[in-house]
């Protein structure tokens, strides 16, 4: 595994990833929580028992075949380390947690950002789901042409028109 404690980011090769056949069926959760920390709300939030963890300090593992892509784990994860990925009609889709202002609007074109915050392409916001009543914290789903980017896109940059 890459030296993520020096760099602050993971490489694609560090991660468990579902087969393309699964990703093409529906959204599937992927985890970027690789360090043993005392935390388990993702496990408790899963309605189909698809996240496994050994003890509270364990690392979560998603059973990609069981996962139904509901996004509960994305909404609850305190580390913002859960994402959903999907490929539909050849296009890539990623759902990610977003806790900044301004929020983009549905239909907006946004910059797609990788794990280092670098722009890796452009995408369209296809849904915004507010996850708390009293904050703007949301799950944003973006769609983009290059399906291979589902392994890369982990943030969006709102393009401001001023």
């Amino acid at each position: 595994m890459s030296d993520y404690l020096k760099t602050g980011y993971l490489n694609t090769s560090d991660l468990e990833f579902p087969d393309e056949s699964v990703v093409k069926q529906h959204f599937v959760a992927v985890t970027e929580c690789v360090q043993e920390i005392p935390c388990n709300p993702c496990v408790e939030s899963c309605p189909v028992d698809a996240i496994k963890m050994e003890g509270i300090n364990g690392v979560p593992h998603v059973d990609f075949k069981k996962c139904i892509g509901c996004g509960n784990c994305v909404a609850v994860c305190p580390g913002l380390a859960m994402f959903l990925v999907n490929i539909k009609e050849g296009k890539g889709r990623v759902s990610l947690p977003y806790e900044m202002l301004p929020l983009p609007n549905k239909g907006d074109t946004v910059n797609l950002l990788g794990r280092k915050g670098k722009i890796v392409g452009a995408g369209t916001v296809i849904s915004i789901r507010q996850i708390e009543k009293d904050t703007t914290s949301s799950i944003i789903t973006v769609e983009f042409d290059d399906p291979s980017l589902i392994k890369v896109v982990r943030n969006v940059g709102v393009i401001r028109n001023e």
Binding site: Y9, E32, I37
Partner: peptide, 11 residues
């Protein structure tokens, strides 16, 4: 690490 990753993805 997850806190670091949150920052890095904002550059």
């Amino acid at each position: 690490f997850v806190h670091a990753a949150k920052l890095r993805r904002f550059g």
